[in-house]
Each structure stands twice: as C-alpha cells, then as structure tokens.
Amino acid sequence: MAELKLIGFLCNWCSYAGADMAGMARMKQPGELRIIRLPCTGRVNPLLILKAFQQGADGVLVSGCHPGDCHYNEGNYYARRRLELLSRMLPAFGIEPERFHFTWVSASEGARWADVVTEFTGKIEAMGKA
C-alpha cells in the first residue's frame, strides 16, 4: 500500500511543544503525520484543510491549546466554531468526516500527543487511501 499522506496543523505554543516533548521522550509513535506549525489554531483557515484534502491528503489533524489556555486568549475559541462547522460540512463535499480530527494537546502532554497520533494514524490506516 502506498504511504498515507497525513497532515497535521499544530499550534506553536501547546501542541507543537507537546509533540516535541513526545519526541524528546522517545515515545513510540507512527511517522506518517507531516506537521505544519502555525502560531495558533485561530490561524487555521478551514481552506488549508480543504486544500490539503483536495491535493490528496488522506487525513488532516488539527491540534491546539486546550480551551482557556490559548496563548492569544481566544484563538482556539474561534477555531472551535470554524472547525466544528467544517467537520459537519465534509460529508457534503464528499470527504469522509473521519479523515479529519480536531483536538487539544498541551505542551506538557507528550504522552497524550503520542496517543492522539497513534490513534489517528491507525484510524486512517484502517480506512485506507482517500
């Protein structure tokens, strides 16, 4: 099977640091996810996700600070609305909604990050290429 193309949009302050921590701690995690670092999930234009799918991504993961912990106070609250709407729209676009996942991982949650990636990669692997 061809290699899966998984794209991750991570906020700089929490999830990217969390992923870094998982790496530093040498936690075992699958390697298909290609991470793109953004300042905040509030920067995640839903079109970035749609463009990724349109260009052949098999799965897209967005992860940011937990609500209440945003480095910019409210970026992830906006993201939460936008991405909830997006995930509900994906079926109408012809994209399986399971291929998109939106979650929160803090800078101290290296283990949680490893779980999120493992679970997400496993799910997409089971679904196969888009």
Partner: peptide, 30 residues
Amino acid sequence: ELFGYRAGTDLEARPPLLTFDIKGDSRSEK
C-alpha cells in the same frame, strides 16, 4: 443548528463565526 443563526435576519446580530461562546460551544470539544 449549531449557532441558532440565520444570516440577514437581525441587523444587530453578530455573525456566528466572528464570535464565540466559552461555555456554549463546548459540545464540540473532543
């Protein structure tokens, strides 16, 4: 369904994606 909002029905309303509800949106927390 999500925000109880219909565009162009209330001159004073704030469009749903230009605001947020700290508690009310938590349903979408995963």
